[in-house]
Amino acid sequence: MIIPKLLSVFFLQLVCVHLLVLNGANAQALKEGFYKSKCPSFEAIVKNTTASFISQAPSLAPALLRMHFHDCFVRGCDGSVLINSTSSNQAEKDAIPNQTLRGFQVIDAVKSAVEEKCPALVSCADIIALINGPSWSVPLGRRDGRVSISSEALANLPPPFFNITQLKASFRSKGLNDIDLAVLSGGHTIGISHCSSFSNRLYNFTGRGDTDPSLDPNYIVQLKKKCSPGDANSIVEMDPGSAKIFDTSYYSIVKKRRGLLEADAALLNDNVTRAYVQLQANSGGSNFFKDFAVSMVKMGKIGVLTGNSGEIRKICN
């Protein structure tokens, strides 16, 4: 669309206000038990199918959590991260930040099982959201988006090297506050990271062959044993010794200046996020699980499509 220059700013302001109102209305349309009458076995199918995969490969749990985050931060929680690229379009899935996403086979298996029982009723977006909510109630009713563009993933997903100002701006642009940032960062208590995501902190932080002064020197020694210069493929646990357990030890690690990513360390550079890190590190996890559920539900409402918007895809990719 071509907009005359004198009208462009005003038009964009109107669009932003309209989208905020529309997104708020769509989020309100989500509700718990959305499929209770139409597909009463839906949630059980999701739970049982997902459990069968994770029992064989526990590392899929953090992978699916990450997928939900990467879906919601681009075009909202609409399942667009699942769409395959075509000869005429490179989709989100193939953007650099998403090339290490895993767990698509779990989504496909759940969708196939749901389609067999309740054809053309359940969205792929709702499947992603529900897979990540085994311990809290997840409002449902999302519909699937039709658009998936690689460049939008690159523009919207906060990279591992963001500082606290950039992180806060990224989260706020999605309707999430600074506490949500601190809480959702706690998801790094499970899972792994590739050396390429933090190796600059070990070998070339400012371009002078130096290390990141915010990272514990003793931890740097340990990390260098696992990640040699230029190593892009080796992996390191985000929360050493507890990477398969969803607990609060992540915050103790960050407090000790052993947060693996620059984005983890950045939490100590803001009064609000630092206070949350210290609270969880000192209290052994005061209210963290409750806080995490609240922030996950909030994130799961970003930019959702409901009602007659979007579609219900039979095949998620």
Rank of each mutant, 00 (worst) to 15 (best):
I179W: 01
L60E: 03
K174S: 04
E152S: 10
P229A: 10
K168N: 10
V304Y: 05
N156V: 03
V17I: 10
P159T: 15
F161Q: 15
G187F: 05
D216S: 08
R75D: 12
V297G: 00
L20D: 07
F104H: 15
M67K: 10
L130M: 06
K314H: 02
S112K: 14
S242F: 01
L215G: 02
S123Y: 14
C227L: 09
E116D: 14
N269L: 14
G284W: 01
N204Y: 06
D144K: 14
D264V: 08
S242D: 05
Q222V: 06
Q280H: 07
E43I: 13
N282W: 00
E43R: 14
L60K: 00
H70V: 04
A63F: 00
R257S: 13
F171T: 05
N26T: 05
A265S: 10
V277H: 03
C124I: 08
L268Y: 05
I3E: 13
K225G: 11
A263V: 11
I312M: 04
L279I: 01
S59M: 04
G285N: 01
L261T: 01
S55Y: 07
V297M: 04
E116Y: 07
N204Q: 07
F11W: 07
L6H: 10
G303H: 12
L20P: 02
K244V: 00
G24Q: 10
R143I: 10
D126R: 09
D212M: 13
S196T: 08
A109R: 08
S87F: 11
S112R: 12
F42W: 13
M67L: 15
A182T: 08
F69Y: 15
E152T: 05
I96M: 13
G76P: 11
N163R: 02
D239W: 00
K290N: 09
S170M: 08
K314V: 06
L305F: 14
E43C: 12
L30D: 06
K93T: 07
N282Q: 13
F288S: 01
A125P: 12
V114M: 12
G145S: 13
K5D: 09
A61G: 00
D231S: 03
D78R: 15
S55T: 13
L19N: 06
N269H: 14
G310Y: 12
A275E: 10
V254C: 03
C227R: 12
I107C: 00
V74W: 12
L22K: 06
S151C: 03
D239L: 00
F42P: 04
I127Y: 04
P134C: 11
K117L: 11
Y276F: 08
A44C: 08
Y219N: 07
N89S: 11
A25E: 12
M296C: 14
S80T: 15
T306F: 07
S137Y: 09
T306E: 09
L305S: 09
Y276R: 05
R66E: 12
L261W: 12
S52I: 00
R75K: 12
G259Y: 03
L184K: 05
G187I: 01
G259T: 03
L82W: 01
S173E: 11
S286M: 01
S249A: 06
S286D: 07
V21P: 03
N282R: 03
T165V: 06
D216L: 07
L22I: 03
F10L: 05
F10H: 08
G24S: 14
N200P: 01
A29N: 15
